[in-house]
Nucleic acid binder design. Structure first.
Lengths: 212, 212
DNA sequence: CCTATAAATTATCAGTAATTAATTTTTATC
DNA sequence: GATAAAAATTAATTACTGATAATTTATAGG
C-alpha cells in the first residue's frame, strides 16, 4: 500500500480511528439522539477507551458537529448541483426522488436532520441545518421562478415555504417511518419496490403541489 | 366552590399539583426530549421540589408514559370517531385537515409523537404509538375500502401504508417545521393564514394520492 | 533501528440525574 | 378543632457522564 498516487492518500492509524469514531457516533446519535448517546457507547463501538476520543475531538459537542457536517454537506452539494442544472419542470418534480436516492444511500441523515432541527435553537447543529435550508431554498426559488411553473398562490413566499416544508417532511419522514410501516404492512421501506412506490407517490404529490 | 354537581368535581390540591406536573412535563419532554429533560426542570416548572414528583408518579418513565397517554388518546378518539362516520370520499380527503385542527389545539403532540416513534423500540412510548397507528390504520382501511375510491395500486397494503405514512408526515411534520419556515419566510406556521395554506396543500395532495 | 510524537490506556475527578429516606407541613375529613 | 393521610421539603445516596491527568504503548518518519 504505497503512497504513490495523490488520489489514494494512505490514512494514518489515528485518522482511521477518527473515522471509526465518527461512524460510531453517527450511528448512535441518529438512533439515540445527542443526549441519549454517551461517549462511552461511542468509544466502545469504535473499539477504544472513552478518553481516547479526546485525541481526535475536543469534546462531545465537537464530535457531534463533525458528524453533522460530514452527513449534511454531501447532500447539500448534490442538491445544489442538481438545482444549478435545473432547466425544466421535470427537474423540480424529480427533486424529491433525487433526495430519496441520496437518503437511501445514507438513511441516518434523516434522523440527524430531524434532531438538529428540533434541538436547542442556539446550538450549532440547529444553525447548521437552518443555514443549509436557507441556501437551498434561495437557490431553488431563484431557478424555479425562471420556469414559469409556479402557480399564482405559490409566488407568495409563505405558500412556497410551506410547499418546500411539505417536500422535506415527505422525503425525510419516509426514512423515519419504518416502525410505523411495520404496524400496517410487511417489509422494509428501503426495499426497491417500496422505494419505487414512494417515488411514484412523490411524483404525483409534487405535481399536485407545483401545478395549480 | 362546593362539590354540589357531579359534573364539576373539585380536585384536591394534590390532584391539581399532578396536573401541573403533567403540563410541565409535556412541555419539557416535547421541546427537550425524554433524555434531555430532567426531573428538576419539571419540578421547578411545576413549582415543587423534585422528590415531590414521586408522590404522584413512580418515576420519570411513569410520568413520561402518563404524558403520552394524555396527549395521544384524545386525538386517537377524535380521529377514530371521524373515521367511524366517514361515508364519502370527502371525509377522507378532509382527514388531514381534521388532524391539523387537532394538532393546532395541541401542537406538542407532534413532537411527542415523533420522539416516541423514534425512541427505543421496547419502550412503552414506542409501543403505545405503534398500537395507536395500527388501530387507526385498520379502522381507516376498513371504511375506506367501502367507498371504492382506492386506486388499483392502493389496494396493496404496502402502497396504502406508504400513503398513510405520507399523510402523517405531512400533518405532524408541519407543526415541527417552524424553524425551517423561518429560514424561508416571515411569520408563524400556526397563524390562520398559514393553516389555511397548509389545508389547501393537504387537500390537493390528498386527492392526488387517493385518485389514480 | 531510533526517537519524537501520536494515540492509546488507566486512574481519577467534579458535577449531575434519578431516586430513596427522613422530617415537616398541609390538607381533607369528621 | 383534632387527626390521619397526603403532600411537601430537606437531606442523602448511588450511579452515571463528560472531562482531565498521568502513564504506557504504538506509530510514523528519518
Amino acid at each position: 500500500m504505497p503512497n504513490s498516487t495523490p488520489t489514494t492518500v494512505k490514512k494514518t492509524k489515528g485518522q482511521q480511528t477518527a473515522i471509526r469514531i465518527m461512524d460510531a457516533a453517527e450511528d448512535l446519535f441518529s438512533s439515540h439522539g445527542y443526549e441519549g448517546t454517551t461517549l462511552r457507547q461511542i468509544a466502545s463501538k469504535a473499539q477504544i477507551q472513552e478518553p481516547g476520543l479526546y485525541n481526535h475531538f475536543s469534546g462531545k459537542r465537537a464530535l457531534y458537529e463533525a458528524v453533522l457536517h460530514r452527513a449534511l454537506n454531501p447532500m447539500a452539494e448534490a442538491l445544489g448541483a442538481h438545482l444549478g442544472q435545473a432547466s425544466g419542470l421535470r427537474d423540480y418534480t424529480d427533486l424529491p426522488s433525487i433526495m430519496t436516492d441520496l437518503l437511501l444511500d445514507h438513511p441516518q441523515i434523516s434522523a440527524l436532520f430531524q434532531q438538529a432541527m428540533q434541538g436547542e435553537s442556539d446550538s450549532l447543529g440547529n444553525q447548521l441545518v437552518r443555514n443549509w435550508l436557507e441556501r437551498l431554498f434561495k437557490d431553488g426559488v431563484m431557478s424555479l421562478s425562471g420556469t414559469g411553473s409556479l402557480g399564482e398562490g405559490e409566488q407568495d413566499p409563505s405558500a412556497l415555504a410551506i410547499s418546500v416544508i411539505a417536500m422535506f417532511n415527505l422525503t425525510t419522514g419516509y426514512f423515519l417511518s419504518q416502525r410505523a410501516f411495520e404496524t400496517m404492512a410487511e417489509g422494509d421501506l428501503q426495499s426497491p419496490e417500496n422505494i419505487a412506490r414512494q417515488k411514484r407517490l412523490l411524483h404525483r404529490v409534487m405535481r399536485a403541489m407545483l401545478i395549480s
